Amino acid sequence: MKRDIQTLSERQKALFLKEGRGIGDGPDYVPGRTLRELRGIGRMHRFACIRCGGRQIVLPSDMALSVFLEEHWDPATSDLKDHYPLCDVEQTRRIAEKLGLRHPSLTDGSPAILITSLLVCKQQAGELKLYAVDIASWRAAGHTPTSAARQIKEEYWRRLGVPYRVAYSEGLNSDRAKHLWNLYNIAERVMSRGLTEEEKALQRAVLARCRLRRETTLLDVCHRTADKHGISRADCVAAMRRLIAMRLIDCSLDVPVLLVQPLRDTQISVAERKDEDAPKRSQSRARGRARTVAQLMSRINSLIKKRT
């Protein structure tokens, strides 16, 4: 005879399993926190991410957004799983006992499901690797003792062979974070709708001017290109930002004004003729990565089951 679920921990786990939280890859992934549960924590950000299969990402603060953008900017990143739940409560409880720590609990004293802020999937040296990341304010770096929950999560991921770290963030207060947020939105628009023939021509003109290395800054390149071809300077600036967002021009993001930086410090990363196909190539890579992520997560889940 099946006994009734009695503890809040058991009810929480049953709810997570029913809703599929922490399960799936790419567009099918279900985070461990719902929109309703995240309300009131901070300034919320909701947006779609093509690299994550086009699903909606919900982040509860500027700090979480900043860390997400930094991980997303890495070309090796193939998928990001926000609010990843450690549903194996018995395993985390045993880890807490072994470490002599008090496991975070619900109101009835039963152990709560721990959540890792971000599980990052990266393609490195021909292999797919996972990285577990929790997020904290930069003000807490070096001043606040490591919480029991983080110590438990660190040991949990260590046993699975997954590196764990805490990312200290200052939110969108840095120049780099602001540029990353702007470039992210530009890249998503290009990926979702592609480029018009006019936009492609503008990008070719800007790239050609960059190769001449005659101007002093990226903004000068835009102005000279516009003046030479009799087109709007604003359109050339938009083309330059698209090229940077799609990683076709590499430049520093740690500057107050993105385009007012020396042209000599930038690098054109691809042949000119390839820039028009960048959205198609990126979408094809994303589909391939999603299949590989699914295979890796399947092996991780199998390992978790064997250890319980």
Rank of each mutant, 00 (worst) to 15 (best):
R193N: 03
A187H: 06
D250Y: 14
E197W: 12
D235L: 13
A201L: 15
V166G: 10
R150Y: 08
P145Q: 04
L202E: 00
R176D: 03
R233F: 00
M246H: 12
L207Q: 06
A239S: 07
L253S: 07
R241E: 15
G171A: 04
H179W: 13
S169Y: 12
Q124S: 07
C222L: 09
Y156K: 08
T217V: 01
R213N: 12
A149D: 01
G142W: 00
H229W: 13
T225D: 06
I231D: 02
D227Y: 13
L128G: 00
L128M: 12
L243Y: 10
M191E: 10
Q151C: 09
R213P: 00
E199V: 12
S192P: 01
G171C: 05
T196K: 11
D227M: 11
P256D: 03
R139Q: 11
R242D: 00
R214L: 14
P256W: 13
A226T: 10
R233Q: 11
D227Q: 15
E155F: 00
D220K: 11
A245M: 01
T217A: 01
G126W: 02
V133G: 01
K200C: 13
V255C: 12
L128E: 05
E215P: 10
T196V: 01
A208K: 15
L195R: 14
A208L: 14
V206C: 14
L207R: 10
R224F: 06
G230C: 05
M191V: 02
A234E: 12
N185E: 14
V162K: 09
H229Y: 14
G230E: 02
R165H: 13
A177V: 04
W157L: 09
L212Y: 05
E188H: 10
A149M: 05
T146S: 09
S169Q: 07
A177Q: 06
C210P: 07
S147P: 01
I186F: 02
C251Q: 03
Y156R: 01
H143S: 11
R165F: 13
R204G: 14
S137C: 12
E215K: 07
R150F: 08
R165C: 07
L243M: 08
A132V: 03
L172P: 03
A226E: 03
Y184E: 02
Y184M: 12
D220W: 10
V190H: 05
C236I: 00
A239H: 08
V237I: 15
D250H: 15
T216Q: 14
R193C: 05
Y164Q: 09
A125L: 04
E170L: 11
Q124T: 03
D175K: 05
G230Q: 08
P145F: 06
R242Y: 02
R241K: 15
T146L: 10
R150C: 06
L130W: 04
D134L: 00
L243T: 08
V166K: 11
H143Q: 12
R165M: 04
A208M: 13
L219H: 14
L212H: 12
L180H: 05
L218W: 04
M240G: 08
R214F: 10
A187L: 08
L248F: 13
A149P: 08
L183G: 05
V133Y: 08
H179N: 06
L218P: 00
D235R: 07
E170I: 02
S174F: 03
R209S: 13
R150T: 00
R193S: 07
A177Y: 04
Y184P: 00
Q151T: 01
V166Y: 07
T217W: 10
N173V: 02
A234L: 09
A177L: 09
V221H: 04
I244F: 06
